[in-house]
Design a protein around this nucleic acid. Structure first.
Length: 211
DNA sequence: CCAATGATTGCCT
DNA sequence: GGCAATCATTGGC
C-alpha cells in the first residue's frame, strides 16, 4: 500500500452535523500516520461519539471551553489528542462545525501496515490483539502523542482514508460508552460503536494471533 | 498556589 | 476482580 493511493476523507465528511453518523461511518476506515517517514496504517473497528455541550461525558459539556479543549470548538476535521490518567494519549477526531464541539474517540483498530514499527513503539515482542485494542494502545502503536493535537486531517502525517472496505450496518453494534460512569444518565447512551465479532474490539481478553 | 482527578492499562491476588 | 501508575489540566482558594 502506498500513501499516494490512499483517498483521504474530505473536510465535508468531518463537518457533518450528526456525530453519531460520523462515528459509525468511521468503522472500516483506515487510520494513517506517517511520522519521521515511518508509515503505519490500521483499520478502525471501534469508536465512541461525544456530543458536544449537552453531553455530560464530553470535555466540552456545558460549553466548558479551556486551553485543552479549544480545538474541539473549531471546525471538524482536526485531531484532538489529550493525556488521560497521566499515562495514555487518546486520539479523537473533531466533527461538526465551529462552536459545535463534537468529537469521535478512536478506541480500537486492526493493524495493517507497519506492524514492526507498532511493536517497537509499544515495546511488545510479538503480535497479539492488544497491540491496537483500547484507545491508549491505538495512539501508542500509531505513534500519536500530545504534539499531534490540532493537526488538520488533510495533512500527510495524520489522516483517515477510505479504501473501499465496507462494514455493513448489521455488523455494527452500539453499546454504552466505556469509563464515563461519572456522566450520570448520559453514561448509558448507546454512543459506542463496534464491529461485531472483531477481535481487536476492547473488552475481550487478547490472545496470540496465528501467522 | 495547590489539591483533585481522569474518554486507561496492565500487573497482582 | 482489585488497584497502582503518573501527570497535565482543571477549578477552587
Amino acid at each position: 500500500m502506498k500513501i499516494e493511493d490512499l483517498k483521504k476523507l474530505t473536510p465535508s465528511f468531518y463537518t457533518q452535523k450528526n456525530v453519531l453518523a460520523v462515528a459509525k461511518s468511521l468503522l472500516g476506515k483506515l487510520l494513517v500516520t506517517q511520522f519521521n517517514n515511518q508509515l503505519t496504517i490500521s483499520r478502525i473497528v471501534e469508536t465512541e461519539a461525544y456530543e458536544g455541550i449537552t453531553d455530560k461525558a464530553s470535555h466540552a459539556y456545558n460549553n466548558r471551553r479551556t486551553t485543552r479543549t479549544e480545538i474541539m470548538f473549531g471546525n471538524g476535521g482536526f485531531s484532538y489528542v489529550y493525556l488521560c490518567y497521566g499515562v495514555h494519549y487518546l486520539f479523537n477526531v473533531v466533527t461538526h462545525t465551529i462552536n459545535h464541539p463534537h468529537a469521535v474517540l478512536i478506541r480500537a483498530t486492526e493493524p495493517i501496515v507497519g506492524i514492526e514499527a507498532m511493536l517497537e513503539r509499544t515495546g511488545k515482542l510479538t503480535l497479539d490483539y492488544s497491540l491496537t485494542k483500547g484507545p491508549g494502545n491505538v495512539a501508542k502503536a500509531m505513534g500519536i502523542n500530545k504534539l499531534h493535537s490540532g493537526i488538520n486531517l488533510q495533512s500527510n502525517e495524520l489522516f483517515i482514508a477510505d479504501d473501499g472496505y465496507k462494514i455493513f450496518t448489521n455488523n455494527i453494534l452500539a453499546t454504552k460508552r466505556i469509563g464515563v460512569d461519572y456522566a450520570g444518565e448520559d453514561a448509558l447512551l448507546p454512543y459506542r460503536f463496534i464491529v461485531k465479532d472483531n477481535l481487536y474490539v476492547s473488552g475481550k481478553k487478547s490472545q496470540n494471533i496465528a501467522v
